[in-house]
């Protein structure tokens, strides 16, 4: 039982990161019906930019740990958001009226480009965050090992997700995003500037992805230029699992995927962990073809 609970918390911690990245996929998909395969690389950029800013500005030394990290998170989110918007402008906007899969290939090209740019700038070796920036306190809850940072990471992810959810559901801009997701041309007729909505989506999604990258860097300490593929694929799986285009779905999907992986590794086999996760995904899709929280769309005739 104790091991089970421990594995559950292990899974939730990883799942929180997946969920945060998955939001970027799902938001872009919701509005553009585009799978942004370069999103994982934006996540990597978050991790690398965070490292550069952290070491060059020495924020945590100057203004203290909490404030320093907060400023760092905001800076990284801002920079990655700008990068995301640039990506949209260069690789996706020219393809908006084209077949959907063309944009997918453009995204894959962009992904290769972004990844190799990082390799050339930073070199191929693993980059490492300075050791012992984070307080290494461990909470001991009924014999479970839970590092404090893990709790903070999960809390931060959940906070960002909730903020995003409220933003989408309760504000005028959020309503515009939802409207554009449902029907772009109708939204345009209602006076919504769809181009701005798309730009906004490409600022928000990458910002969250960049934040996730920074958190991974801060907590695990080790980043490399190909990590975006691994995390991106997991997050994309999570977004589909929850029903792509659906924001709560991405959160549920991410957390669930993390837990499936941890429990699969614990009780079936570590080596087959990813295969187990994909099997569960396929089974779920057979039962619910549009994911857990995806809408059931009847074919229009």
């Amino acid at each position: 039982m104790e091991e089970f609970l421990q594995q559950l918390t292990n899974g939730l911690a990883v799942g929180g990161i997946y969920a945060l990245i998955a939001l970027g996929y799902t938001m872009v998909y919701g509005v553009l019906k585009l799978i942004n395969f370069a999103h994982g690389d934006l996540f990597t950029y978050g991790a690398y930019l965070g490292l550069t800013l952290l070491t060059s500005l020495a924020l945590t030394d100057r203004v203290g740990f909490a404030l320093g990290v907060l400023v760092l998170v905001l800076m990284v989110m801002g920079l990655v958001a700008i990068l995301g918007a640039m990506l949209e402008r260069a690789a996706y906007r020219p393809l908006r009226e084209s077949p959907r899969l063309s944009a997918v290939v453009s995204a894959l090209g962009a992904s290769i480009f972004l990844q190799n740019t990082l390799m050339l700038v930073y070199g191929a070796r693993f980059q490492v965050y300075p050791d012992e920036i984070l307080p290494a306190a461990t909470l001991d809850v009924f014999g479970l090992y839970i590092p404090l940072m893990r709790v903070l990471i999960v809390l931060a992810s959940v906070a960002m997700m909730v903020a995003l959810y409220l933003f989408i559901q309760k504000t005028r801009i959020g309503t515009a995003i939802r409207a554009a997701a449902i029907d772009q041309s109708a939204a345009r007729l209602m006076g919504i500037d769809v181009n701005r909505v798309i730009l906004l989506v490409f600022l928000l999604g990458p910002a969250l992805g960049g934040a996730a990258g920074l958190m991974v860097g801060l907590y695990y300490g080790q980043v490399n230029f190909t990590m975006g593929w691994v995390y991106g694929m997991k997050a994309f799986t999570a977004a589909i699992l929850g029903g792509i285009g659906n924001i709560p779905g991405a959160m549920v999907g991410g957390l669930l995927l993390g837990v499936i992986e941890a429990l699969g590794a614990a009780y079936v086999s570590i080596a087959w962990k990813d295969a187990i996760a994909f099997c569960v995904l396929i089974l779920i899709l057979i039962v619910r073809p549009t994911g857990l929280l995806g809408e059931r769309v009847a074919d229009k005739i």
Binding site: L95, E97, S102, G109, A110, Q115, L120
Partner: peptide
């Protein structure tokens, strides 16, 4: 050399943007 995949990625992107239908 080391930049060959970078150039390749860029070319893929540009080709797709120039000829969206393939």
């Amino acid at each position: 050399a080391g930049a060959r995949m970078l150039v390749f990625g860029l070319v893929m992107m540009v080709m797709m943007v120039i000829r969206p239908q393939g």
